[in-house]
Design a binder for these strands. Sequence first.
DNA 1: TCTGGGGTCCTAGGACCC
DNA 2: TCTGGGGTCCTAGGACCC
Length: 415
Amino acid sequence: MDTTATILHADLDAFYASVEQLLNPSLRGKPIAVGGGVVLAASYEAKAFGVRGGMPGRRARELCPQLIFVGGNFKDYQRLGDTAIKVLGDFTPLVERISIDEAFADVAGCTHLFGSPADIAATIRHRVRTELGLPISVGVARTKHLAKIASQVAKPDGMVLVDPKTELEFLHDLPVELMWGVGPVTKAKLTERGILTIGQLANTPGRSIERLLGTAVGEKLSALAWNRDPRAIRTQHRARSAGAQSALGSKPAVESVFKPALLHLADRVASRLRAKSLAGSTVTVRVRFADMRAITRSMTLGAPISATVMLAEIAEELVRVALTDHPQERTITLLAISISQLRKQPEIQLDLPLELPDEKRRPGAKKGIARWIADRAIDTIRDRFGRDAVGYAATALDGPRSVPDGFRELAEKEL
DNA sequence: TCTGGGGTCCTAGGACCC
DNA sequence: TCTGGGGTCCTAGGACCC
């Protein structure tokens, strides 16, 4: 077994909020939240009041009346996030980025050049601070899981090295929710059994944990609690699905509402697929009702698709099925489209619409070629003049958007 | 004026095949 | 008049992560 701690986990602190405080010095030292209807990020000054990401803006204001809301400078988040992660790349090519503000790196192969992993971590922190003006915390350990936990413990603006000789001592005093894979539901189940720390979890019989949480989760958490984490750094990721969703407020569950909304979502998803020469064959829709319960309906096609209108029509049919199954629901609050079973689809897309299994039911399917050509034309115009230059007339959204498009684009993973 | 948006993985039942 | 057993895919739901 590798006995040296060479895995780094670097995590920018309160990232969006820190960028805002960097760009606007008058915000420094003050409780700020990025977002509006919902808090996308909170500064440490705001976190001290209990403000958290994902929280409704109104709730945040209740907790912290002097909270300052700032609009998001999404281009700057992307730019500064990219620049910070590139600093890791100056030490090793073995960098695994897991979000806009977070990455793993394995520095085993470059210590002869740059010093110990702890030295490298210190240099990274110093460079990000001086060159970008942003705080970043780094965990250094023998495994990814431990490095990730270490960076959380190091926050804000710190560095923690987990000595391979004392890993379990470090791990076992920490609360279970610091483990990767323990969210609110699992934490509640563990708490009910009196299991609050990772050490207590480790010392509970595996069979008992698996009964409580299911086989897969139980096995995974037991392994993590004993620090058996075999995951390697993965520099390449291939997306398995692509999707888009939109919270609607409260809207009647009728076609005149869901049809234009689905066209808009299909447009977002399909144009992203085409930009990467991808197509997918399983279409899933999600419908959320007034009480926040959500249902999904999906369909697997005989051939992958990437045409906007094709995707929109299939999604409409699935939403109709979903609503027919729940006739008592009169109000919908969210619609989502996701497409999976993605495949590379270079130039042969012209053939695809003709192969659709439901062609018989829909004699107009031959329009597929015309649609595909129209999609490509729209993609081209957007490439030159921007996303809003041209689109489907029916997709114009009424009312304010809950989240700016800039944030949507940030959240999109590379396909 | 309740509760964003983009993803991954797991489970369980049923269909279908050999 | 009894009803195997393994494998794979599809569908729906749910937990979790950033």
